[in-house]
Amino acid sequence: MSLLRITHLPSGRLLSAILHHQRLLPSIIPLTVPKRAVIQGEYKRPGQPRKAKFPWKKINFNFSKGLEGIKKHFTLLKKEFTDRWVGPEGKPIVEHMLEQNRAVWEFRGPESLGEWTVSSDREIGGHSEAYLKLGRNNNTCFLYGTLSSTPPRDGETRYSGYCTMRSKQPLASFDRKKHHDWSSFNTLHLRVRGDGRPWMINISAETYFSHQKDDIYCYFLYTRGGPYWQDVKIPFSKFFLTHRGRIQDDQHPVWLDKVNTIGFTLGDKADGPFQLEIDFIGVCKDYAHTEEFAYEAYKRNPEV
C-alpha cells in the first residue's frame, strides 16, 4: 500500500493500515545466521534422550566417602605447596630448565589405565566396540576392538563408526582443573605399534570463552603395521584447530601451557578389527625444528 493511497483514507482506517504495514515489515527482513554462535547450547547426541535429572540428584551423600575425599584433597593441597618450594612440578629449577624429554604417560601397571577413558559410537546406538587393557608384561597399553560404520536406526544419525581413547582431565585439590605445561617443548613423541590404520591425535587446551569448549587441535598418526615399534615425533606447530569435527578458517597455535587432554580417534570407515599398542606418550625439545605455525593465520586487525 503506497503512501499516496493512505493519505485519502479516513483517520480510523488510516491508523489500522499503518499498523498492518508495520506488522508486515519483520517478515521482509532477511534472516542472518552467524557462522559460529557466541553462545551455544549443550550438545545432545542423536538418539539420546534429554537429561531430566536435577544436578543435586546425581550427588552421593555418603559420610565415609566425604571423609575420604577431605583426606585426599588436603593431601593434594599439601603437595601443591611443597612442590612450589622445590620447583615446577616438584623438580629442581635447574633440572626443569635443562629438561629436553619428558614421558608424560607410561603404561607400567593397572593404575596407569585409570587415567584414560574409552568410548565408541555404541553410546549413540552404533555397533563399534573398543576395549583397553595392559599389553604383555604389563609394560604397554593395548587398545583393541571392532569398527563398524553402520549407523544406528534412530532416524537422525546418518554417519557412524568411531572409537576413541582419551586421557582424563588432571585435577588438583578440591577438584580444581590442572593443566599440562608443555611450553618448554615443541614436539610430541610417541612409541606405538599399530596395524596400518590411520589415527587422529586430538589435543584439547583450556579456553577463555564458553563457545570454544569444543575446540580441539588435531593431526594424523599413520601406523605401519607389523611386529616392529615405531617412534613418532610430531611438532606441535602441525596441529590444526577444529570445532566439533570441522576445520576452522581462523587458525592459531595450541596453547602449550594449558593442555587439558590428549586422545586418539579411529574413524577410517574400514569395518573390521583394529589394535593399537602404546609404550609411552611424551614431549621433547627439537632444536632443529624452528617452525612456529604451519598454517596461514589471519590478521585480526589488518593494517589499512
Rank of each mutant, 00 (worst) to 15 (best):
P46H: 03
A37C: 05
I18H: 04
L9K: 01
I28S: 08
I18F: 04
P26I: 06
L15M: 07
G47P: 07
G41L: 14
A52C: 10
K51M: 01
R13V: 07
P46K: 08
A52V: 14
H8I: 07
L15K: 08
R45H: 12
P46I: 01
L14E: 03
H21E: 09
Q22F: 10
A17T: 10
Q40K: 10
P10V: 05
L25V: 15
L9W: 02
G41D: 13
I39Y: 01
L25N: 01
I29R: 14
K51G: 10
P30S: 11
E42G: 05
H8M: 03
V33N: 07
H20P: 02
I28L: 15
Q22V: 12
S16F: 00
K35M: 12
V38A: 10
L15Y: 06
P34K: 00
P10M: 02
K35T: 12
P30G: 00
S27L: 06
H8L: 14
Y43L: 11
G47N: 11
K51R: 11
S11W: 09
R13M: 04
L24V: 03
I39P: 00
G47V: 05
K44D: 08
L24A: 14
L9Y: 04
A52N: 14
T32Y: 05
E42F: 06
K44C: 06
K44S: 12
K44F: 09
